[in-house]
């Protein structure tokens, strides 16, 4: 009996050991980034030298120089708050447009069977999964012609590629979660679709809408590829700025400074991580558009 108990306890310890190691594995790279942003170098603890190895290159530095200077630098640089503002403007406006279009579409997909439903669902799946290069060049050419290159409108529109599928399909899922009899009762009461959407569906799915909006916002915030090609000095976003440095123009990549990169990266992920944790219940639905349910 007690032997059995011991065995059980042992397996419990092993399980927790594994869980803790997995958690360390997840957090390690992040904490190193945060720490490197503070210019901490563990080298001196051992030999007075830090080291990193890229092929034949050896870069040594000495001394513990814990300092928030890179963070201050990042925040002080004129461009950084600007990048934050750009990301917020673009993401919020794009998500809003996606809500206006995706909410009624998600409602219709949830409530009705109709010809073309498979087509729309398929198009939204494809939109979510498509390689940006399959649409990038036409965007590049057309934006050049219409003067949309490096504008807020242009970026908000491009990001509908990310946001429309997320909002539409997540909302479809949230509407599906509501017992269908509630809608049937409303239909038989003689209510129009827009009345039902406004007075019944939306109030009941409001927490879901918030989650979908947050999820879409984070997706846009984190997006790098379209930003790399379609933003410039005016609309450059945080994730773009994290990579290419904070102050230069779009054309020249400046020599990457890792401490700065790490500090900027840390600052960039904080809002995304906080927001995502707030909606983590719906992560799988958001990523798979509800296909994995």
């Amino acid at each position: 009996m007690s032997e059995n108990k011991n065995k059980k306890n042992n397996s419990r310890y092993i399980r927790y050991l594994l869980l803790v190691s997995a958690a360390l594995w997840v957090l390690w790279p992040i904490s190193i980034m945060v720490e490197e942003g503070f210019r901490v170098d563990i080298g001196p603890l051992f030999s007075g030298r830090g080291a990193s190895f890229v092929g034949e290159f050896f870069q040594g530095q000495g001394g513990i120089k814990f300092s928030p200077i890179e963070y201050q630098k990042a925040l002080r640089i004129e461009a950084y708050p600007r990048l934050l503002v750009n990301s917020v403007i673009i993401a919020v406006s794009s998500v809003l447009v996606a809500i206006l279009a995706g909410l009624p579409a998600g409602f219709t997909l949830a409530m009705y069977k109709f010809r073309g439903k498979a087509f729309i669902t398929y198009a939204l799946l494809a939109m979510r999964t498509i390689s940006p290069f399959a649409v990038l060049l036409p965007f590049f050419l057309i934006y050049g012609r219409l003067g949309l290159f490096d504008t807020y409108q242009g970026m908000a529109f491009v990001y509908l590629i990310i946001n429309l599928p997320i909002i539409t399909m997540m909302m479809r899922g949230f509407f599906k979660d509501i017992p269908k009899e509630i809608f049937e009762a409303a239909f038989m009461s003689g209510a129009s679709d827009s009345y039902i959407l406004r007075k019944v569906a939306l109030p009941l799915a409001l927490p879901g809408l918030a989650a979908a909006a947050v999820f879409a916002f984070v997706g846009t915030w984190n997006e790098f590829f379209y930003a790399l090609f379609l933003t410039g000095a005016v609309t450059k976003t945080v994730s773009r700025g994290v990579w290419s440095g904070f102050s230069e123009s779009i054309e020249s990549f400046k020599i990457l400074e890792f401490d700065e990169l790490n500090a900027g990266g840390t600052l960039a992920i904080i809002p995304a991580v906080i927001l995502s944790l707030a909606v983590q219940r719906y992560l799988a639905r958001g990523i798979t558009l509800g296909a994995a349910e």
Partner: peptide, 15 residues
């Protein structure tokens, strides 16, 4: 909507 009917459900289906 236009059939002029009402329905009551097992799970009440209230708003």
């Amino acid at each position: 909507r236009e059939r002029d009917i009402s329905m009551v459900f097992q799970n009440f289906a209230l708003f």
